[in-house]
Amino acid sequence: MRLDWEIAKRGWRRYAAYPWATVAGIFTNTIFGFIQAYILLAVYRHRTDVGGYDVRDTVTYVWLAQAILMTVYVFGWQELALRIRDGSIATDLVRPLDPQRYWLAYDLGRAPYHFVFRGFLPFVFGALVFRLHTPSPLDAVAFLVSLAVAVVVSLGFRFLYNLSAFWLVDIRGVMMVSLSLSLFLSGMVMPLSFFPGWLGEIAHALPFASIVQAPIDIWLGKHHGAALAGVIALQAFWALVFLGLGRLALRAGSRKLVIQGG
């Protein structure tokens, strides 16, 4: 536990070391938030409800998505893949520390940094211009829990596609496809409630919805009581699925490394 804490601190510091990158990111998120908000507002000139979202829900969605974008890190991530490619994974594997545990702790140190420093201000800027939905205290707490689980789901997924580097010389193809899928199907680009029925159902059934759509819906108060617990349980389920698959893939990959020498 002490070790995990130390690793998590490294994750935090790695990003805290570049404050101007944070300022630049906040600026970019805010610009995107405004453009996206006005595009979706235009939809509500003709309608009052889209898939159960009223206009305030939708605008809140846009700003929350910008706010948690970095926290849940729906981006191309290849730190692990690069370690596999340059062979440093071999040293990681002989350490008495499981790589999955390492990256999980690291990511759970990174995420709070991004939540506080990349999430807060864009949301405040949005709230200054638009009327946003304020969650009940219970929903706010549930949102934080859900967001934490979302980080684990996201890391589990990123960890998994990074491991393809054991078998592929170049993982960029895999990364591009993974990135496209997770950006679009998580609800990052557009709320899943805007999707046409069948596509929305597919998206909701897939694990990516647990990364963005689930925590935001909780903030918006779309789930109550048992249903709320159910959503978080489903997220936790997907987190375990990805971590489990990651574990299997890591074992297979290290076996390949031992047998074929990388």
């Binding site: 570049y18 404050p19 101007w20 630049a24 600026f27």
Partner: peptide, 11 residues
């Protein structure tokens, strides 16, 4: 002015 601020260019 800020070499860490590469992200600005994305905006």
């Amino acid at each position: 002015w800020t070499t860490d601020g590469g992200e600005f260019t994305n905006a």
